[in-house]
Amino acid sequence: MDVSNILASHAAKYQSVTVEKETSLDVDVGYLTVVDPNPIDEDSYKSNLEEHLQSLARDGIQSLLSSLFTLPTKSSDDGPLAQLPPPKIQLPRAKPLPKPKPPTKWEQFAAAKGIQKKRKDRKEWDEERQEWVNRWGKDGKNKQTEEQWITEVPLNADVDYDPRKVAREERKARVAKNEKQRQGNLARAQGPSSSVADTNPREQRKKEITKSLSSARISTASMGRFDKKLEGEKKIRGVKRKFDANEQPVEHEKNASLALLSKMESDAKKTRAAPPSGDGVVNVRKAVRFASKGQGGIALGRESSGGSTKRKQGAKRR
């Protein structure tokens, strides 16, 4: 039996999917691009341009497709999806790389203490109603006290004590606090000079010009008194002095005096006003106050050392 025919046809078929070139083709599958680094053959170029270009392209695309079809695939509704490797050729980006967001104060603290982020569910289980309710928003769990029809009033409450109003105010205060902290984080992220007038170059220039003009106007011997006035020129206005009212409530006066006294009297107050040292992630003063239950650091140290000595004595006696 002569199989040479079959073999030859098979070889022809097989050859058609492989490409033999002097220098192997440079395939970048990530960008679906193939670069043929072989010099162009002058004879075939001159004899029939279109055919030459098409055969060149066919060879290149054949080798690109061979590497494409050997990639691992995922199946999808539209057909197999080839998983492309990252591209080799570097193309310039259209926009700069995104800047990482500066961490919020809480994120800094959480990172320092190793606190993992926990995602809270939007819904919360209501034991009484035996169903899932919104944590906030419409019929939110956080508004439960405000909306329930009967609420317990503490024993020593005022006559006009309104538990619904109190609960509502507490909730509003929480929201306001959160908003304030958010604004603080935004301001910190923007850096020290955050106001619009400081950053906008036009505003800056305007400010500068006004400043130098006003200083030029009072720079003559008479401080600008006998200068020729231009039409429409305005008088320079300085800072207006302000006085307190002659008669004030006693409360105001008392508060002002107390504030002054406390400022003068104690060094402790001064140190508190100074920015905390260290990395600023943990408020050490607050932590000590919390741990010692308001007794202070010395009391905390005394307590820990005293406790241990007592135990030691007990051991000796035994």
Binding site: Y31, L32, I40, L56, L65, L68, G79, P80, L84
Partner: peptide, 24 residues
């Protein structure tokens, strides 16, 4: 072709842009 993609649908490959030069 400047877009980086992680996967491509193989039946969606339809056309070629070929850029070739005259002999150097």
């Amino acid at each position: 072709n400047g877009e980086e993609v992680d996967e491509i649908c193989l039946p969606g490959i339809e056309h070629v842009i070929s850029i070739s030069l005259a002999p150097t």
